[in-house]
């Protein structure tokens, strides 16, 4: 993934320590490091770009105000995604009835995004690839929300099972189960793209 280079341990500790001491430039540098991932995560949770951008602002402000609760600089990424997740869930609660699948994931599809229909069949492979991605995004959006967030964090954000478990506050086995189920569903729905 593109974006600024990941800081080394010393740089990360320095950034976090300075931000916790009230240095706005250090905090802004932290935002620059994580902004693309956080926006993508908010979009995947909310399925509306405009609303995801509003939520992202709330995530930034919450992060600033809660900086003192960050115990370890190494946990920065998990801590930010946790805040993002909470803000997204709060937003969904206010917007409409919270998708049931945040409480009971079986059988309740998440909020659906209106996406363009699958492109006309084309022999051109790049067009086919784009269409496959559109389809995959649609299928991911149709997963139960708890599966969707875990799958996205694992496969799109490359986070470890352990980090995801901390972000979604669920046991490791539950996270593994959700991702495994999501994979089964998605693999099945992607079969026509063989």
């Amino acid at each position: 993934m593109s974006g600024p280079e990941k800081p080394d341990q010393h740089e990360l500790r320095t950034l976090v320590a300075r931000a916790q001491s009230g240095d706005p430039r250090a905090f802004e540098n932290i935002l620059v490091l994580y902004q693309h991932g956080l926006l993508r995560f908010c979009r995947s949770m909310i399925n509306s770009s405009g609303e995801a951008e509003d939520v992202l602002q709330e995530v930034y402000l919450s992060a600033w105000r809660q900086l003192s609760t960050l115990q370890s600089p190494e946990a920065l990424s998990v801590w930010l995604y946790r805040i993002a997740r909470h803000r997204c869930i709060d937003h969904l609660r206010k917007r409409t009835p919270l998708p049931q699948d945040f409480h009971d994931e079986e059988g309740n599809p998440g909020p659906r995004q209106v996406l363009e229909p699958r492109a006309n069949a084309s022999l051109e492979s790049s067009a086919e690839t784009r269409a496959a991605i559109v389809e995959l995004r649609r299928f991911v959006n149709e997963l139960p929300a708890t599966q969707r967030e875990c799958w996205v964090l694992k496969e799109v954000h490359d986070l470890s099972y352990s980090d995801i478990s901390k972000i979604v506050s669920a046991p490791l086995t539950t996270v593994r189960g959700r991702i495994a189920r999501a994979r089964v569903t998605l693999a099945e729905r992607m079969q026509p793209w063989k």
Partner: peptide, 15 residues
Amino acid sequence: LAPLAKATTQWKIGN
């Protein structure tokens, strides 16, 4: 798993 893996990889590249 191949079609899912391929589309997932392309999704990440598209990021």
